[in-house]
């Protein structure tokens, strides 16, 4: 399992200065940052585990928990906020019982919802990204049907 981690580490020359890049690549591989790879990273770049954990918990893009099969990213930039992002989050909470923060993933790892501070596509506000696909001008109602559609596609 750790071979992939070693490969990533080697591609960064086991360099402590590349810790952020190393963790990004590991997250891309595993979908989150599992404990074992983090320990491996600390060992290989010769950094205290606390430093690696410090980075992994400081930056928003890292997750220490497994994330869902489907990822819903809600843009909460200013334009999206004034155009209705809170209602979109409300719809997600009603439909899936999850909200950005501690309870961001459904049981059984179906969905993860995350809030991002501006994705730089303000013309599409309120903007939601479902599994990498941008969805513009989303309302509570549209969010509801996006979730239903995604759930159905899963069952197939």
């Amino acid at each position: 399992m750790l071979e992939k981690v070693d490969r990533i580490l080697t591609s960064h020359g086991n360099d402590k200065a590349s810790l952020i890049g190393i963790l990004q690549d590991i997250q891309a591989e595993y979908n989150y940052l599992p404990p074992k790879p983090l320990e491996r990273v600390a060992e290989k770049v010769d950094a205290p585990l606390s430093q690696v954990l410090g980075i992994a918990t400081f930056f928003q893009s890292f997750s220490l928990k497994p994330r869902g099969e489907h990822i819903i990213t809600v843009c909460t930039g200013t334009a999206c906020h004034v155009k209705g992002a809170p209602r979109v989050l409300g719809a997600i909470e009603r439909e899936l019982g999850i909200k950005p923060g501690d309870d961001d993933t459904t049981e059984g790892l179906g969905f993860t919802v995350e809030a991002v501070n501006c994705l730089g596509s303000c013309a599409l506000a309120p903007l939601v990204v479902v599994d990498g696909k941008y969805q513009g001008h989303v309302t509570g109602k549209k969010m509801q049907s996006l979730i239903n559609k995604t759930q159905k596609s899963k069952k197939k």
Partner: peptide
């Protein structure tokens, strides 16, 4: 690292 929300 443009971080201001609403600026792109």
């Amino acid at each position: 690292d443009e971080g201001d929300p609403g600026a792109y």
